[in-house]
Design a protein around this nucleic acid. Sequence first.
DNA 1: TGACTTTTGTGAATTTACTCACATACTTAT
DNA 2: ATAAGTATGTGAGTAAATTCACAAAAGTCA
Lengths: 210, 210
Amino acid sequence: MKFAKVPMATIVRLSIYMRTLKEQMDCDVDVISSERLAKQCSVNPAQIRKDLAYFGDFGVRGVGYRVRDLVNQIRDILGLNRPWNLAMVGMGDLGSALVRHGNFIRHGYIFTAAFDIDPRKVGKMLPNGLVISHISELEDVVREREVHVGIIATPPGAAQSVANQLVLAGINGILNFAPVQIQVPDCCHIENVDFTIKLDSIAHHLSFGD
Amino acid sequence: MKFAKVPMATIVRLSIYMRTLKEQMDCDVDVISSERLAKQCSVNPAQIRKDLAYFGDFGVRGVGYRVRDLVNQIRDILGLNRPWNLAMVGMGDLGSALVRHGNFIRHGYIFTAAFDIDPRKVGKMLPNGLVISHISELEDVVREREVHVGIIATPPGAAQSVANQLVLAGINGILNFAPVQIQVPDCCHIENVDFTIKLDSIAHHLSFGD
DNA sequence: TGACTTTTGTGAATTTACTCACATACTTAT
DNA sequence: ATAAGTATGTGAGTAAATTCACAAAAGTCA
């Protein structure tokens, strides 16, 4: 195992590898080569081997990688071998859809809180049993329910203020769906999910080729 | 204006610059320096100047950039000076929320079609007047309504098949919300929106610091 | 007009990331 | 036991992206 600085891009790719490996597991594939995995993930085989080499020797020469073992290794590398509690802030169309979306559960993430500023929504129970809290209670509820990651799905204008409150409540990880650039202190890691930016890339591509 | 190869990352940043510049316009800011814009976008000022320099000289030395002009310039660079028609495939929770979401409209994108495989959903009219079509009609409807970009919000298992149909219908741009790696021919540009991957990055970060 | 301030545009330096190519190690078959 | 066949792990080479640092250009004010 080495201790060189790991590129951020490697971490992202590890997630992709894990997802693809899980699919393979479902198809009863026991062992996979970097070449085959690479094809499925649309990356270079050497890239995969190098990405994994940052963290140890997980393969068997002449054979490949044992799928189940590698999934577990990557799970450990990413820190997914423990529960992570999420809080959704902003229960509009998008926020509600995301909370209901099975994808978070499937990957081991659990919503333990949901907030909205609209008093009419507060108190309502979601299909998963979660009750919506008012945003004024954010700090208390976040601490009480040990929320690790805050998800922002508010209108753009409210996003920065919500982020501030989350940071104040001790949150160090934010997933932001609001289409604004949010400023957070260094202690807090923020990731943006911004589909209009992705659409813009597509528009550019359609307009001007590569 | 130069003709060097433009990094993909530059295109993504241009979207971010444009969004931030629009916010500034709303605050009646006429002129902005690369330094100030950089701070708001959390990038290096030289990065901004270099990104813009790929496409021309848009600034005034000693002054900065005229906000309104720069927004227009970036709009042209990204190919957003024309309408783009979208089709949503998969009208579950997420797909429905996205179609209702104001963010696409605000950026000039228009949904001209929506598809689902569930016969009970077909024929229903959405708030914006759009009627859901059955996925079997995808090719015809896509051509008829001149859809430019297909958005996939189906369950993972259906995503690849939907992508194939979209490509067959002549679509060259896909925005994929399904958490699977989709293979498309080179003629088609695909962007993935994958929030569990982003969450994994956050989990890693929370577990192991930087 | 000319000195001073500001901020762009950009070549050069640096940092970061990716790919190649091959020695190494493991399996299988004879 | 040995040779043949595969696929990993990695040093070296390549490519790409970012940041630095400063000359050039525009504005301001005496």
